[in-house]
């Protein structure tokens, strides 16, 4: 309740939330705003922006509506970003909880695996994964998560370690609760808030990674993606730079929105910690 109040008190948080709400709306309403396949040809190729009313942001070299593709691209970006962050955080929470709760060789093993994943460049791993399994929405989501779960895992482990020794957990242990039940019911609720503040960074990173993957031609080939649009614009970069610039701007605004909202979350959480 009061955390919500503090979130609203942070100008960044409010601005970020507004941006995200708008984007979410656009993504949801994409089929209404621009019905039909955004990859259909609707006009003359390479129409300049702000010249034709039907295609306000211009058309690409095939005559497809840039705005329609960007609007539909928002669906992909947000879906992949949120899904990948969700998967990454889930893996991270699971690994971190197990490591922190069981300790000993479980902890040791899981942490070495975490080290290994942090040592491999996550983007290279995603590349390798997508190229072996083949590009699809699910593969891309999982590939991104593969390189992003280590942060939350470390964080959750540290939190669990500090919570594990507290009274209420000890009490649960004495009562004879199953370790997993303790983890889910007693430990996790306390370990999660710091992870939430990390979520924004992970979502933003996931959106950027998705864009980079589809920029390199490893996105889902059947969907309009911002990264793919930027890549397609490259071939006419000299004559029609706007083709690459528009989707990039959409990307910047989205990621900025996520970061701003994240600042709001941090403000809401941090103040709650120092408060009563």
């Amino acid at each position: 309740m009061s955390a919500a109040v503090r979130f609203r008190a942070s100008a960044e948080g409010v601005a970020g939330l507004a941006i995200l709400a708008l984007l979410g709306l656009v993504a949801l309403l994409a089929p209404v705003l621009h019905p039909g396949d955004p990859l259909d040809i609707v006009g003359a190729p390479l129409t300049r922006p702000f010249t034709v009313l039907a295609t306000p942001l211009g058309t690409d070299w095939l005559g497809r509506d840039v705005l329609a593709m960007i609007v539909h691209g928002a669906r992909t970006s947000l879906t992949v970003g949120l899904a990948a962050a969700f998967v990454a955080i889930s893996i991270g929470v699971a690994v971190g909880t197990l490591a922190g709760l069981f300790g000993r060789w479980v902890d040791e093993t899981l942490m070495r695996v975490t080290d290994a994943f942090q040592t491999i460049p996550g983007f290279l791993l995603a590349l390798a994964f997508v190229s072996t399994v083949g590009p699809s929405l699910a593969t891309v989501v999982f590939a991104i998560a593969l390189g992003a779960w280590t942060g939350p895992a470390r964080l959750v482990r540290a939190e669990v370690l500090s919570i594990r020794e507290r009274d209420f957990v000890a009490a649960a242990r004495v009562v004879g609760m199953h370790p997993l039940a303790i983890a889910v019911r007693e430990v996790l609720p306390h370990a999660l808030p710091p992870v939430v503040s990390l979520a924004a960074v992970i979502v933003a990173g996931a959106i950027l990674t998705e864009a980079a993957l589809s920029f390199l031609g490893l996105g889902d080939p059947n969907r309009a993606t911002w990264g793919g649009l930027i890549a397609e614009g490259r071939s006419v970069l000299r004559s029609a730079p706007f083709l690459s610039i528009w989707p990039g701007l959409a990307l910047v605004v989205t990621v900025l929105g996520v970061h701003l909202a994240g600042e709001g979350v941090v403000a809401a959480l941090a103040l709650r910690r120092s408060g009563p």
Binding site: A204, L208, F215, G248, L251, V252, T254, V255, V258, H259
Partner: peptide, 8 residues
């Protein structure tokens, strides 16, 4: 700046 994708 932190929101700008490097390739773009």
């Amino acid at each position: 700046l932190y929101a700008v994708p490097g390739f773009w």
